[in-house]
Amino acid sequence: MSSEPNPPSDAANEFQEQENPALRGIDYSESTNVNQIHESILREKVDPQEGEEPISLVLIGIIGVTLLFGGIYLGRYWGAFDGMIYDERARSVVAGAATGGGAGAAGAPAAAEDPVAVALKLGKRVYTANCASCHQGSGQGAAGQYPPLVASDYVLQSERRLIALLLHGAEGPMTVKGNVYNGAMPAWEKQLNDKQMAAVATYIRQEWGNNGGPITPEQVAAARVEFASQTKAYNEAQLLAIDGPIVVK
């Protein structure tokens, strides 16, 4: 403000007049000329003040746009603030998590929409209740009596044959993975509905390291019609007639 030229002479005179004790700590080495040693301090302009100019409307607009942009960006890639979501572009999972009502539930609703995952859960329940007593929880069966399901060609090859077997059962000697088994499997045609049967078939085709594809309730329904003429359990020859012999790999 007051940038009038400094008159160093007045101030300097005052310095010379007063023998000020406060100056004692100020040692500017050999120079004794008070006038010149304080030159840099005397010539200084005022200490900074702050003006009162208001913030311009344009600037407020810029700030608003920036904030708006930030909000949009955050909304788009927020990842539901979920510690498990690593891909900011995962819109569907984010949407699922959002409707699922919270961070922790992010995975579950997404899984609920996947029919195979549901089938696997239902299939496990059906298997434990009905099949595990013979084929065992491990799917390994029992030597000489109940054939294994793990890596079994009956399970993994023809889908139609597998459904037929489940519907009507089997009896008599059968060769599975080079071993002969002689037992009897009941028909499940009446106990299990299409959904349950498809689920258990899907389950045994994908559990224990098996890598078969899923089986749908529609396939089961079609098989009920197709194999309706079968009135008793299949034997090995009849089973092999469906979709041809087992291909040994």
Binding site: L59, T66, G70, Y77, A80
Partner: peptide
């Protein structure tokens, strides 16, 4: 990096928000 998306996104948004103090 292997970090939750929200953390990265918030840092990006905050980085963009730095435009405000800088312009001011």
């Amino acid at each position: 990096g292997p970090l939750p998306a929200w953390l990265i996104t918030s840092s990006i948004v905050a980085s963009v928000m730095m435009v405000i103090p800088v312009v001011v």
